[in-house]
């Protein structure tokens, strides 16, 4: 446990140090890469609550990522066109303020998670995977055909949204925002894993029968886990859209679901900092190998295969050793 903590702290410091160094050397591209790592790690932290703690293999988390992205996209596009989203029953105007956009993203993806969770958690195993995937695909095709917000072409935002007191157009300041949110999410999920709820949820993953026998309902525990997990990934979606100043149906595609899951698995399922390590390795590989070959994902595939076959503890498990868990 002690070694894993040390390793986690080192990873977080590295994520902070690299962009600071790049800032000093005036390499904004590297800062942007680090920001991307922080945001994608955040998406993984969300999924890890469902997948790692709850054992819920959701292949539909792109739905929440995309809902977050489109929450940002719709609010910001209305703000830049100076037209309200709707005026009845109350006036709802667009906004370019991150706090309000985040709140919308979190509420929208929490509602999405509640609906998707309530329906798909009645199944388990392969059926659960397929149903979450199906919901995600429904949203994907909905976004493609929703021409008011760009349809297939997606939606561009001219200027990055604002955070009170900061200049978000400055890469290092926007990185600080993303990094701050990631730290908060990591802190929260660490608390959650040790809480009464975390204990019960983790027990439901290990033995559903046991949890029922002590009088706790696994379905309720899992639904709450889903409604906590979804919004964290949704918040990451809003930040990701802000990073690119662009939202498109790709954010809702099942590739995105798969990528988020890869972050978690690469780092180590159920490991608190697994998504951070996974996202960092993914972006590094994409950046380094992507320059050499268009087919860099072959190497990612080999790495993933090796991980699953020989190192179930993920990349964190290798230096730290197995065990840990909740």
């Amino acid at each position: 446990m002690g070694r894993e903590r040390l390793f986690n702290a080192a990873m977080l410091l590295a994520l902070l140090a690299v962009p600071l160094l790049a800032w000093g050397l005036q390499e904004p591209f590297i800062i942007t890469l680090a920001t991307k790592v922080a945001i994608l790690a955040l998406a993984g932290v969300g999924l890890n609550i469902a997948l790692g703690l709850g054992g819920l293999v959701s292949l539909g988390h792109a739905a929440f990522f995309g809902i977050g992205g489109y929450a940002m996209g719709t609010l910001a596009s209305h703000a830049q066109n100076y037209e309200p989203l709707f005026s009845w029953p109350f006036l709802f105007e667009g906004s370019n303020q991150m706090p309000l956009i985040w709140l919308t993203a979190v509420l929208a993806s929490a509602s999405g998670a509640l609906v998707i969770g309530a329906l798909s958690l009645r199944t388990s195993g392969v059926y659960f995977i397929m149903i979450t995937l199906a919901f995600c695909q429904m949203l994907y095709y909905f976004a493609i055909s929703w021409s008011a917000y760009g349809g297939e072409d997606g939606l561009s935002i001219w200027v990055r949204n604002e955070m009170p007191g900061l200049n978000t157009l400055d890469p290092i300041q926007f990185f600080a925002v993303a990094f701050g949110v990631l730290c908060l999410a990591l802190w929260f999920s660490a608390r959650l894993a040790r809480s009464a709820f975390g204990l019960a949820l983790s027990a439901a993953r290990q033995s559903e029968e046991r949890v029922e026998t002590v009088g706790l309902a696994p379905f309720k525990l899992r639904l709450v886990a889903f409604v906590i997990s979804g919004p964290i990934t949704g918040l990451a979606g809003a930040l990701f859209a802000d990073l690119n100043r662009f939202v498109s149906p790709t954010m809702l595609s099942w590739h995105t679901s798969g990528e988020i899951m890869i972050f978690v698995i690469l780092g180590g399922v159920g490991r608190l900092y697994g998504p951070l390590v996974g996202a960092a390795v993914y972006i590094l590989l994409e950046h380094l190998l992507g320059g050499i070959s268009e087919y860099w994902q072959i190497f990612l595939g080999l790495l993933l295969l090796g991980m699953v076959l020989f190192a179930r503890g993920g990349l964190i498990g290798a230096p730290v050793g197995s065990g840990g868990g909740a």
Binding site: F197, S202, A203, S207, R210, T213, V214, L216, I228, G325
Partner: peptide, 26 residues
């Protein structure tokens, strides 16, 4: 039918939690 990854104490605490009837402290 026990939570095998848990410590013995954690399994017992899970029972106590069930007796309390609420497990939504986060």
């Amino acid at each position: 039918s026990l939570a095998m990854e848990f410590s013995v104490l954690q399994n017992a605490v899970l029972g106590a939690l069930g007796a309390r009837g609420r497990a939504f402290g986060l």
